[in-house]
């Protein structure tokens, strides 16, 4: 009941804000070429969806996000496992990988453009580079937090190393690893949209930039709203998936 009331209040606040914005633009308190009034935005949403390849751009951006994160999982989980098993490597590299977190890796995109050419491969490579960092760190963190008693019991029953890994360590660390995967997905998407926007590659980020360059302000606002809605949906879905993985 409470949850219902709070989401209704949230929606009402957004509606009131939209109305105020509409009035402010109509009264020329805010210039219409800076902020598109919500009514024009809604009208533009229809034309943008009808005239621009929105669905195709959406598929490109999200396909690239998923693919680069999948690659990051395939590389990052084994690397995290290696850092856990070889304590020396773990101690030597962990702070370096942590530092990569804070380095603005997105700046590498010009190099990737030259190496891979202007293609979807640049986008996937850039998504991969940022997604792999949290996946490695969270895999190692999850494996380190597995209760030793679980491993000892498995060893006591003469389980092989492979069985200990697949039947005990990985399942126990799964929720933490998935947290890393979720972070990786969001980082990859952020980076991918950024490169699409900056380098005028295809995808949702490109669409926003192109509408701005054409000075179609209501259309640009509509495209931005589309992007906000899809990333919010993405966030909510992966959050639900994370709870589901954690609960099993």
């Amino acid at each position: 009941m409470r949850g219902w009331a709070s989401s209704a209040t949230g929606l009402a606040c957004v509606a009131v804000l939209a109305l105020l914005l509409e009035l402010a633009v109509a009264a020329e308190l805010i210039a219409g070429y800076v902020v598109a009034p919500p009514s024009a935005m809604l009208a533009a949403l229809v034309t943008v969806v009808a005239e621009e390849p929105v669905l195709e751009d959406f598929c490109l951006t999200f396909g690239a996000t998923l693919l680069s994160t999948l690659l990051a999982v395939l590389v990052g989980v084994p690397l995290g496992y290696l850092l856990h098993r070889r304590k020396l490597l773990g101690r030597a590299y962990e702070s370096w990988i942590g530092a990569l977190f804070s380095a603005p890796l997105v700046l590498l995109y010009p190099i990737f453009l030259v190496v891979f050419g202007r293609s979807i491969r640049v986008v996937i490579a850039m998504g991969f580079v940022v997604a792999v960092v949290p996946i490695i760190l969270k895999t190692r963190e999850g494996l380190a937090a597995v209760r030793p008693v679980l491993v000892n019991v498995a060893r006591a029953f003469n389980a092989s190393e492979a069985a200990v890994t697949t039947k005990v360590l990985l399942p126990a660390a799964r929720p933490t690893i998935f947290t890393g995967v979720r972070l990786g997905l969001i980082y990859a998407m952020t980076n991918i949209v950024g490169i699409e926007f900056l380098a005028n590659l295809s995808g949702l980020g490109f669409l926003v930039g192109e509408l701005y360059d054409r000075y179609d302000i209501p259309g640009m606002y509509a495209a931005i709203v589309c992007l906000i809605l899809t990333s919010a949906l993405f966030y909510a879905l992966t959050g639900r998936l994370e709870r589901w993985v954690g609960a099993r």
């Binding site: 952020t190 949209v193 950024g194 926007f197 906000i228 990333s231 919010a232 993405f234 966030y235 909510a236």
Partner: peptide, 9 residues
Amino acid sequence: GLASTPKIV
């Protein structure tokens, strides 16, 4: 929702 949107847009 806004926090997970790429800010560059």
